[in-house]
């Protein structure tokens, strides 16, 4: 099995951006991959319909950490609609590619992002 991560993936694994938990978040969401057991927890802060801040916690492999890192970087400042439509393929592309068996990590990150935005929207509806 080739697990040759790109330099960019390694950088984001070693120095991940946006790790941690936001204090007083507007929404949180956990997501797990039933196949490999990886988990991500997102916390979100929204301002004027845009992603003001987003952070994550990870129980996962190097690519799980790297994909969440780069994705959270990219979606900051986006409208919620834009962020919800941020595709996992863009994460893979940003990292310069991922080993085939690691593609699912980027999908997990995107699903988690969607889940935390939807959690926020649900909360708004209830208000």
């Amino acid at each position: 099995m080739s697990l040759n991560y790109t330099k960019k993936t390694v950088q984001h694994f070693l120095h991940p951006k946006n790790v941690g938990e936001i204090k007083n978040p507007d929404a949180t969401a956990d997501i797990g991959n039933m196949v490999c057991g990886d988990q991500l927890s997102f916390s979100l802060k929204v301002k004027d319909g845009r992603v003001e801040d987003i952070k994550f916690l990870s129980f996962g492999c190097a690519s799980n950490i790297a994909t969440a890192s780069i994705m959270t970087e990219r979606v900051k400042g986006m409208t919620l609609e834009e962020a919800k439509n941020y595709k996992w393929q863009e994460t893979v592309e940003e990292l310069g590619g991922l080993p085939k068996q690691k593609i699912h990590c980027s999908i997990l990150a995107s699903e988690g992002l969607k889940k935390v935005i939807e959690a926020y929207e649900q909360k708004q509806l209830k208000k």
């Binding site: 694994f13 990870s58 129980f59 492999c61 190097a62 799980n64 950490i65």
Partner: peptide, 9 residues
């Protein structure tokens, strides 16, 4: 914590 991440680190 996850084994592959430990290994890679």
């Amino acid at each position: 914590i996850e084994g592959e991440a430990i290994l890679m680190d």
